[in-house]
Design a protein around this nucleic acid. Sequence first.
DNA 1: GAGTGGTCTAGACCACGGT
DNA 2: CCGTGGTCTAGACCACTCA
Lengths: 230, 230
Amino acid sequence: MNSNTHHSIREAIRKRIVAGEWQLGDLIPGEVEFAEEYACSRTTVNRALQALAEEGIVERKRRGGTRVSPLPAPQAQFAIPLVREQVEARGLAYRTKVTAHRVGQPDERTRDQMHLSPAQDCAYLESLHLADGKPFAFERRWINLASVPQFDIEALGELSANEWLVRKVPFSRGSVFLSATSADSQTAERMQVELSTPLFTMRRTTWFGDESVTAMTLYYAPCYELDFTI
Amino acid sequence: MNSNTHHSIREAIRKRIVAGEWQLGDLIPGEVEFAEEYACSRTTVNRALQALAEEGIVERKRRGGTRVSPLPAPQAQFAIPLVREQVEARGLAYRTKVTAHRVGQPDERTRDQMHLSPAQDCAYLESLHLADGKPFAFERRWINLASVPQFDIEALGELSANEWLVRKVPFSRGSVFLSATSADSQTAERMQVELSTPLFTMRRTTWFGDESVTAMTLYYAPCYELDFTI
DNA sequence: GAGTGGTCTAGACCACGGT
DNA sequence: CCGTGGTCTAGACCACTCA
């Protein structure tokens, strides 16, 4: 048995690329050549190179061979965390509180975002996420009752709306917008900050199939930073 | 020949999971079983399921089988774009201008971030990124001359420092911090906004191996949003 | 047309980890 | 222990695309 796994070969080739053995955009050896060099089958090299292609390190074309990416863009992959996890990761106690809720029709902008007809009823929710009792984030959310008819304030229990939705409508997709906004009077009051404080803001709309599930805006406390590695 | 590719099988199984054929956390059929069902080899099913595992849709354990992820967290993958690309994607003309530069030693906080010894010389750069002549982002950057000795203001040409570094030190890794900050007087002047305007801010430190390359802070114009899909 | 990557298959052995 | 996933191999055929 050969100890060369597609994993070890991938790392070996990655190291050679990172070390600059080939210039950006240059052709690197083909699968057969690598297979001879590492004394393994072509299949194994193929897996290794496909993984590097998925990472954006190399680009591959039939007949054209495999080249080092001409302009490798730093890639980041991260999971959108639940606020509960963000709070508990800081060693603080998480609690959430619904500060307002009603059923009604969203404003036109939200209706557009969620592709709703004007008469469509939605649940509206305002919640505060607390870390050790202090405001950590303030959330405004619309939930499409047509796609989540089981939704009810009572059903949440101790969960935040997001935690409930993640369980009830898993594998939803969506778009995220990050920005810096100025605290409006309501947010400032809820978050106990001064009016116009800069707040890191995350806006999300999520979909299940072609039906919108929810649209929300989350305002984080001034201390908050979103961090990830590339 | 069978028309079932690992790709098509992956999508078929994904659809069944998303449709709720199995509950969150439930065991799904094993590789052999799927192979019979889709009339293909176990190898092909294996590739399909491994891909779903990488996406976080299923979790796999030897002997334990494959289960639907109990709490699937929405995953996002995106490339840190060059400011030039962000500007040109909006159909605007990109230009960059170095507004200040010198060689010296960074403040203690930056020195810590970059793991530098006190006497270590760095290049300091302030640049403005313009979109159709209007300020789009303002950047403060330290460059570790020990890891990039070839760096020189003249070497940049029409490129931004980041574009130059991406070519000169490709495949670097690093950490990113996103936040909302209040425009200080210098940034406000350069960006032509009022003092204390909330600005979406990206702080990055990048490494090549165990050597820091650069540390930078980028302040985006108020109109800016970072968007991606999950 | 020919060379490269993309994929499949059947069979084999290994490694982990639940019973 | 033994069933499950993890991986390798050799050979095969296909699909793209460059010359």
